[in-house]
Design a protein around this nucleic acid. Structure first.
Length: 284
DNA sequence: GTCCAGGTGGTCA
DNA sequence: TGACCACATGGA
């Protein structure tokens, strides 16, 4: 698969995916909803698919994984446009070349980012791995690794609050049980991708354990809504150096200021910020 | 022991 | 609405 620019390591460390596992140099085992694959990066633009499993393992798997990586996006044009909007972004964007936003499974994003609230990334990864291993369906094996699909809504519906607690979900356990029930009862959950940005966020925020920030993460990574701009602890810190003093008074003001500052692809800016400051130790 | 983590729900003014 | 606070858990 050829992409205009891709760096698997940067994507893996960008805090959007929690079921990527490095198994060799520039090679990752990638779980995605009910599917999984092994990709090796060659150069800066090519991914070799060593194996593909699950519903995506059939004849259309290439197109489906291409879609997962938003292969149709012209990142050079996106980066140029963002620097044009704000030249101060240039060094941050340059340092993150190969970062891409993934199009992930909505249900997996809901559960994963509910778990992310007031939590550490390594613990989030551990939780989703154990959840998939314990309650998902095995989809194949690759080099001694058994691959698991993320639990379906039906499988999650079989779980109790105690099951989540045993996986280390802590006080969030009752939120999971509640939200899964809500989704099962909603009947139109599989149509949410058709909703307007505003309606989608409203539906997401109606779920127990999903507030503004988590809803925007789900919209960005699960529904391809690149105009989302999740304000987390990192963005709050970064804001101190990027926004005027009067915009720092509340989370709401910070979000509104960034919304105004950047356009329809502000979600990508947010990812560049997150990666640059968290992983490269960039000082705001 | 204390602080923190890709925050949210509940309460009270 | 907005300002607090409690919340499970485990690593630094």
């Amino acid at each position: 698969m050829r992409l205009d620019s891709v760096d698997l390591h940067i994507i893996a460390e960008s805090g959007q995916c929690f079921r990527w596992q490095p198994i060799a140099e520039k090679t990752y085992l990638i779980h995605r909803g009910q599917g999984a694959a092994c990709f090796e990066q060659v150069g800066k633009t090519e991914l070799i698919c060593q194996a593909s499993f699950g519903p995506l393992g059939g004849q259309n798997h290439e197109a489906s994984w291409y879609d997962y990586f938003h292969g149709d996006m012209d990142y050079k044009a996106l980066r140029d446009q963002l620097v044009k909007e704000d030249s101060r972004l240039a060094p941050i964007i340059d340092a993150s070349e190969g970062l891409r936003i993934l199009k992930q499974d909505p249900l997996e994003m809901i559960i994963t980012f509910m778990m992310s609230a007031n939590n550490h990334i390594p613990r989030i990864k551990q939780f989703v791995h154990q959840l998939s291993k314990g309650y998902g369906t095995p989809v194949g094996t690759f080099k001694d690794h058994t691959l698991y699909g993320f639990p379906t809504l039906e499988q999650l519906g079989q779980m109790t609050e105690a099951n989540y607690r045993a996986l280390g979900a802590g006080y969030r356990s009752r939120y999971f049980e509640s939200t899964v029930k809500t989704l099962i009862a909603s009947e139109d959950f599989d149509q949410w991708h058709l909703l307007s940005d505003e309606d989608l966020l409203a539906r997401l925020k109606g779920l127990m354990g999903v507030g503004q920030k988590v809803a925007e993460c789900i919209a960005l990574f699960g529904y391809g809504r690149w105009n989302s701009f999740p304000v987390d602890t990192w963005i709050k810190r970064i804001a101190e150096d990027w926004l005027p003093q009067e915009a720092l008074k509340s989370e709401k003001l910070i979000r509104e200021a960034f919304y105004q500052r950047y356009g329809k692809n502000r979600g990508l800016v947010q990812q560049y910020f997150f990666y640059y400051y968290r992983n490269l130790g960039g000082k705001p």
